[in-house]
């Protein structure tokens, strides 16, 4: 597809270009504290929707914050952002809450979605199985992006692929959720994968 990230800044008024013909809804999923809100916020060309609340002591028993010293808030409903990939294609990004207690909400959010990007953290790869399991149950195709935390061990992608038991065709890439360009590349790998599955891009 050869898409370059749109050149508009992440803030300010950016209106949808008149020629855009195809809208694709994608989910950004992953376990608690993996960087979903950061990812959607870095990518969105419009002011993103955020539903963050301060974490309370009540959640401390179930929400594992090991290695996450700066995290003080968590998404309780959804994140939303929009990214125009090229002259024809606009992506609508829906980020889910990470915790199991919000599962009914994110099942609703899969409605109308074409695919999902699973954000993963090499320090807690095992936490990603539950999310990938739900996607497989729903039949929603996905790609996996390793969010590169500064203090996380850098494993070879092949090792991570084995550890996550991914299918050979499932895209696996690295990204930095804070960085617009690298996050856009991760999304493009998902979109390209979805398009090869569909076979062709619908022109309506």
């Amino acid at each position: 597809m050869g898409s370059a990230p749109a050149s508009e800044p992440a803030t300010g008024e950016v209106h949808l270009r008149p020629g855009v013909q195809t809208a694709v809804k994608l989910l950004v999923v992953g376990h608690f504290a993996v960087g979903k809100t950061t990812f959607v916020g870095a990518l969105s060309e419009i002011r993103p929707l955020r539903t963050e609340e301060v974490m309370t002591e009540a959640g401390a028993i179930v929400d594992d914050l090991a290695g996450m010293t700066d995290k003080t808030t968590t998404t309780v409903a959804l994140d939303f952002g929009r990214l125009t990939l090229n002259d024809r294609l606009v992506l609508y990004l829906f980020g889910t809450p990470g915790q199991q207690r919000f599962a009914p909400l994110w099942h609703d959010m899969t409605r109308g979605a074409l695919g999902a990007l699973v954000l993963a953290d090499t320090r807690r790869l095992g936490h990603s199985f539950e999310v990938m399991g739900v996607l497989e149950e729903l039949g929603l195709p996905y790609a996996v992006a390793l969010n590169q935390f500064d203090d996380a061990p850098a494993h070879e992608l092949d090792e991570v692929r084995d550890a996550l038991d991914l299918l050979p065709e499932t895209p696996l890439v690295r990204c930095d959720a804070r960085d617009r360009v690298s996050s856009t590349r991760a999304l493009i790998s998902l979109v390209e994968y979805l398009l090869t599955r569909i076979g062709h891009l619908e022109h309506t």
Binding site: E13, V14, H15, L16, A23, K25, I46, R47, P48, L49, T51, A77, L78, F80, R82, Y92, F94, L105, D108, M109, R111, G112, A113
Partner: peptide, 27 residues
């Protein structure tokens, strides 16, 4: 729409804002 996509909006609201609100309202 139930999947959070904007279908229509009244005249005095900005489209970008309406898209964000559509997502939030579906939630």
């Amino acid at each position: 729409s139930a999947d959070g996509m904007l279908r229509a909006y009244s005249k005095d609201i900005d489209r970008d804002d309406a898209e964000r609100l559509a997502a939030g309202l579906s939630g």
